[in-house]
Amino acid sequence: MLDDRARMEAAKKEKVEQILAEFQLQEEDLKKVMRRMQKEMDRGLRLETHEEASVKMLPTYVRSTPEGSEVGDFLSLDLGGTNFRVMLVKVGEGEEGQWSVKTKHQMYSIPEDAMTGTAEMLFDYISECISDFLDKHQMKHKKLPLGFTFSFPVRHEDIDKGILLNWTKGFKASGAEGNNVVGLLRDAIKRRGDFEMDVVAMVNDTVATMISCYYEDHQCEVGMIVGTGCNACYMEEMQNVELVEGDEGRMCVNTEWGAFGDSGELDEFLLEYDRLVDESSANPGQQLYEKLIGGKYMGELVRLVLLRLVDENLLFHGEASEQLRTRGAFETRFVSQVESDTGDRKQIYNILSTLGLRPSTTDCDIVRRACESVSTRAAHMCSAGLAGVINRMRESRSEDVMRITVGVDGSVYKLHPSFKERFHASVRRLTPSCEITFIESEEGSGRGAALVSAVACKKACMLGQ
């Protein structure tokens, strides 16, 4: 009897593995994704193909990295998701002549009506938060230079001027797309009239992360975010950046690689679950690469896999709870928690219980395998993109072996128990001629924006502006 049951459990697990095998990517698959990513990057950089390229390769006008001589107080704003952060950054000489960066910050959550109302409502709310922060720190009387981390696709015309191309991540505030974001912020500050600010720089969160990590390690020339969304930036040779005049030196390019796949480059790798996630998203047909990796989508992918296993009578005796059938019910943090389970399955059992399920031991094991399959594919897909960037940098610099540091931020990278190990191992397999160091950014977005502002202020002083 026991043997029969054991055989049935083994057969069930084997069927589960057959279904989950769809998520496995072979090294040849990853090399294919990497080569296609490089081709799209090239198209994004070139003037004649930029418009139709899915990977936009947006110039950021960040050319210099901090040298350690900029000092002063800077205000930093960070808008990239449902939370908005205001930070005071003091850049100065530390002990023994070292450079020191001290920060104080406060988080504000953005109400739904500000995210989806008008641009005026959104930026009025942001300036209200700045006003509140300055009151708390008794700094209303000071006109501070301000660095703005704005983590949406922007076409820069200068370091302090950028046109919002399109909202992502659930934002829909009308009247912002096609307009200068810094102008919208300046107008809102003017409307309030109770404080003055000098907006000197606007950067993407990947750029802010790279600059913040450069402060720790001067070989950091790539910034990457794996959180709600997924994106990367890197220092490109100016001669390859056709959208900006000049051939000397390097400029940081914001790849906006989340949109890779929007022209069909990933079609052969998309599964039924991916198509369902895409169809029910706020932007169907867009940001397809990001939807395979980002935390906004990972939990939902797992939920759809679990429903398939229920329908195949391989999980929960073929019956799903009402909660499990509800879109968004299986949160991405559950994926991390399930994979963090120590082996007694308590954590998995508790999560499934909150979803109205009474799982068996085998159910718990199957749910864990589903989570591992989805998150491992995410790590491997992400590795193909980064390997594409790094191999490109090595080739354009004609280096036999390139040493490089990548600064990384984002909740999936930082909080998932195995993502970074799987990701690092896969990147290294795909970049055999590179020695890569990964560092995690601390308060990256805010500190990085302030350091970019410090560079901009120093330049302005040198130019006598």
Rank of each mutant, 00 (worst) to 15 (best):
L2F: 13
D3C: 05
D4A: 04
R5G: 13
M8W: 13
E9H: 09
A11D: 15
V16E: 14
E17R: 06
F23T: 00
Q24L: 04
Q26D: 08
E28S: 12
D29W: 02
L30G: 00
K31P: 02
K31F: 11
M34Q: 12
M34E: 03
K39G: 06
E48Q: 00
E48T: 05
T49G: 04
H50F: 03
S54D: 14
V55E: 00
V55Y: 01
K56W: 02
M57T: 00
L58Y: 15
T60G: 03
T60E: 03
Y61G: 11
V62T: 01
V62C: 14
R63S: 14
P66A: 13
E67D: 09
E67L: 10
V71Q: 15
V71A: 13
G72E: 05
F74E: 01
S76Y: 09
S76A: 09
L77W: 10
L77D: 05
D78C: 15
D78F: 10
L79F: 04
N83F: 13
F84M: 13
R85A: 13
V86G: 06
V86S: 09
M87L: 13
V89N: 07
V89L: 08
G92M: 08
G92Q: 09
E93G: 13
E95K: 07
E95R: 10
E95V: 14
E96W: 10
Q98S: 06
Q98K: 11
T103M: 05
K104E: 12
Y108M: 01
Y108P: 00
D113S: 13
D113I: 12
D113M: 07
T116L: 07
G117N: 12
G117A: 03
T118R: 13
T118G: 08
A119M: 11
M121I: 10
M121V: 15
L122E: 06
I130L: 09
S131R: 13
F133M: 11
L134V: 10
D135C: 14
H137P: 01
M139A: 09
H141V: 10
K142Y: 05
K143V: 07
F148C: 13
F148N: 03
T149D: 15
T149L: 07
D158R: 07
G162D: 12
L164C: 14
T168V: 08
K169H: 12
F171L: 13
S174R: 14
G175T: 10
E177A: 12
G178N: 14
V181Q: 02
V182S: 05
V182K: 04
L184M: 15
L184P: 07
R191W: 02
R191C: 04
G193Q: 13
G193H: 05
E196F: 09
M197S: 08
D198T: 04
A201P: 10
M202R: 06
M202K: 10
V203W: 05
D205S: 06
A208Q: 02
T209E: 04
M210A: 01
I211T: 02
Y214D: 03
Y214Q: 01
Q219H: 15
C220D: 00
E221M: 08
C230V: 14
A232C: 08
E237L: 09
Q239N: 11
V241L: 08
E242W: 03
E242R: 01
V244F: 07
V244I: 15
G246I: 10
D247F: 05
E248L: 11
R250D: 00
M251W: 02
M251D: 01
M251V: 01
C252Q: 01
V253Q: 00
A259V: 07
F260Q: 01
D262E: 15
G264V: 01
G264Y: 08
E265L: 07
L266P: 05
D267A: 06
D267W: 10
E268K: 07
E268R: 09
E268V: 10
F269P: 00
F269G: 00
E272K: 13
E272A: 06
E272F: 09
Y273A: 05
D278V: 04
E279V: 09
P284K: 14
G285Y: 10
Q286T: 14
L288F: 13
E290R: 05
K291L: 02
L292Q: 06
L292E: 00
K296Y: 12
K296L: 15
M298F: 10
G299R: 00
E300K: 01
E300V: 00
L301W: 00
V302E: 01
L307P: 01
L307A: 12
R308P: 00
R308L: 02
V310A: 15
D311N: 14
E312F: 13
H317M: 08
E319N: 14
E319L: 11
A320L: 05
S321Q: 07
S321I: 14
E322P: 06
L324E: 00
R327D: 15
A329G: 13
A329L: 06
F334P: 01
F334W: 14
F334K: 15
D341F: 04
D341W: 04
D341N: 03
G343V: 05
G343S: 05
D344H: 03
R345P: 09
K346Q: 09
Y349D: 15
N350A: 00
I351S: 08
L355K: 02
L355G: 00
G356K: 03
R358W: 04
P359K: 11
D363A: 03
C364I: 12
I366V: 12
R368H: 05
R368P: 01
C371N: 01
S373L: 12
V374A: 09
S375V: 07
S375L: 12
S375M: 13
T376L: 07
R377S: 00
R377D: 00
M381S: 01
M381G: 02
S383T: 03
G385W: 03
G385A: 13
L386I: 09
A387K: 01
V389Y: 05
R392P: 00
E395A: 12
S396E: 14
R397P: 01
S398G: 03
V401Q: 05
V408S: 09
D409A: 10
S411R: 15
V412G: 05
Y413G: 01
Y413C: 02
K414C: 07
H416M: 05
S418R: 15
F419W: 13
R422E: 08
R422G: 06
H424L: 03
S426K: 13
S426R: 13
R429D: 12
S433W: 07
E435S: 05
I436H: 01
I439M: 13
I439Q: 09
E442T: 03
E442L: 08
E443L: 08
S445F: 14
R447I: 08
A449P: 06
L451V: 10
V452Q: 11
V455R: 07
K459I: 04
G464N: 02
G464Y: 07
Q465F: 06
Q465W: 07
Q465L: 13
Q465A: 11
